[in-house]
Amino acid sequence: MFISGMMAKEPVTIHPDAQISEARELMQVNHIRHLPVVDGSGALVGILTDRDMRDAMPSILLDKESYEMTLAKVLTHTVREIMTKNPQTIPVYYTIEDTLMVLQKKKVGALPVVDEDGGLLGILSTRDLLASFIDVIGLGEPGTLLCILADDRQGQMKKIIDIITEEKISFGSVLVARHWDKDKRAIFPYLLTNNVMNVKKKLLEKGYELIDPMKLYLSQISQKK
């Protein structure tokens, strides 16, 4: 799946020579934590994050008078002075998977999305990615999670899916834990139904084991130790 559908298009931007006061207002009004900095030619020259802003702000431990005085001074400086230069960007043809790996590796909170000439097309935050995962997992729709233990052989998934399809049940998602047990796989179909009784009966009849999710939880705990 591509990021083009989930990024914020036409994001709010700021000019590098704008004052910090303007940036602060833009971030507050639009409830955003990342402000791409774009020069007159439309090129992305930096990103202003809430972290950059906090670094620039006076300490809240100052007395009120010194705080106000310092703040007034800080706010007249330019965005260029405090922004993060050469920000990590991603091209618009990236997939969710690419983006996840970049976010994890670079430890950033948002990624500007650019075209082939480096022009800004959008911005993708970890929040946007979370929303897409909620969608991918099928969390928004009512359903039931099954936990099935199957042999790690070809064709197991088809059999399970056939049983579920015979009951005319739709899928929200299917997750597979590959190294659950030697020669076994744990399969987690999220079914968009309340009616799981017959499908569970059939799975048991065909010899599948329905796992207790709490055993999975406990095995994860012991693995971490």
């Binding site: 729709e141 359903g143 039931t144 999710p213």
Partner: peptide, 8 residues
């Protein structure tokens, strides 16, 4: 709700 219908 992560395991059972209706997820709320």
């Amino acid at each position: 709700p992560s395991f059972a219908y209706p997820g709320t």
